[in-house]
């Protein structure tokens, strides 16, 4: 009975890992398609960023990247300790990321880089807003587990971070 009790959760854990990987594969396809759309639009544009586009505030976006990175690290730390504060910190940092993103969108909209102002603003807004929804989903799951993150959540969180870094590099830096 003890042997069985220890293997069932392990098998379940594996099931879930497989499921999560497939889900992340699907989500990766989604972001890949969005990035493909961006790549095609960019390849078709005679100049990029389109003429008349103000410079992109890379610094602010980089700061957000650091916040999300910190959230991910905090979540990883939470896995290796029994204390609650790293997970709470991760949640706070994740929420801070969303707030900072919202602030960034406001700022961009004010400087003609918001949605409907031009191709660069369109791309950044669509990609980052859709990404923010995934961060939000991660926060919801973290809240649902009462800040006791499962290992799978950290994998999801890593994925969200990687997606963000790719978006940041592709849209803001290149």
């Amino acid at each position: 009975m003890t042997a069985a009790a220890s293997t069932v959760p392990r098998r379940r854990e594996l099931d879930r890992a497989v499921g999560l990987l497939i889900f992340l594969g699907a989500t990766a396809m989604l972001f890949a398609a969005l990035l493909l759309a961006y790549a095609i639009l960019r390849a078709e544009a005679p100049v990029w960023p389109p003429a008349g586009t103000p410079p992109f505030p890379r610094g602010a976006a980089a700061a957000n990247t650091v916040v999300l990175l910190a959230a991910t690290l905090a979540l990883r730390a939470a896995r290796s300790t029994d204390r609650r504060w790293p997970a709470l910190a991760a949640a706070a940092l994740g929420a801070a990321f969303l707030v900072l993103q919202a602030a960034l969108w406001r700022r961009l909209a004010a400087t003609h880089l918001g949605p409907s102002a031009g191709a660069l603003g369109d791309v950044f807004f669509a990609l980052s807003a859709f990404h923010a929804l995934h961060v939000l989903a991660g926060l919801v799951v973290l809240a649902a587990t009462r800040a006791r993150p499962a290992r799978l959540l950290t994998i999801y969180w890593d994925f969200v971070l990687i997606v963000w870094i790719v978006i940041y590099v592709a849209v803001c830096l290149l």
Partner: peptide
Amino acid sequence: ARGVPVFL
């Protein structure tokens, strides 16, 4: 939980 973002 994965259904959640959709409903949100």
